[in-house]
């Protein structure tokens, strides 16, 4: 049972590493932000599984904080971004 959970977690961790490739490669800023967004969601999923595997239900509070703050960086990315002149229509 716990072995299966652990296997799930290891694979999920490996997908996290896979997502890193997109952060590094880009090419655009939007790509990197998008990848970071996916990594954040994966981390939340990992925390859910870890809360069972490590028998620490308090880990869900950490997941909750990640979830509620997930959009902050993206909002900042867009809100402080540049607007080109031809968009001002």
């Amino acid at each position: 049972m716990s072995e299966v959970l652990l296997l799930l977690m290891v694979v999920l961790l490996l997908t996290l590493l896979g997502g890193l490739v997109r952060v590094v490669r880009g090419p655009s800023e939007a790509d990197r932000m998008l990848a970071a967004q996916l990594l954040g969601t994966t981390t939340v999923a990992l925390l859910m599984l870890m809360s069972v595997a490590m028998a620490m239900p308090r880990l869900l509070d950490i997941a909750l904080v990640f979830a509620i703050l997930a959009a902050i960086a993206v909002v900042c990315f867009v809100a402080t971004g540049e607007v080109r002149d031809h968009d001002a229509t």
Binding site: L20, V23, A36, G40, T43, M50, I62
Partner: peptide, 15 residues
Amino acid sequence: VLFMVLGLFVALAWV
């Protein structure tokens, strides 16, 4: 962005 992602991994490590 790498630094932000590092934060995710570090949180997991603290857990």
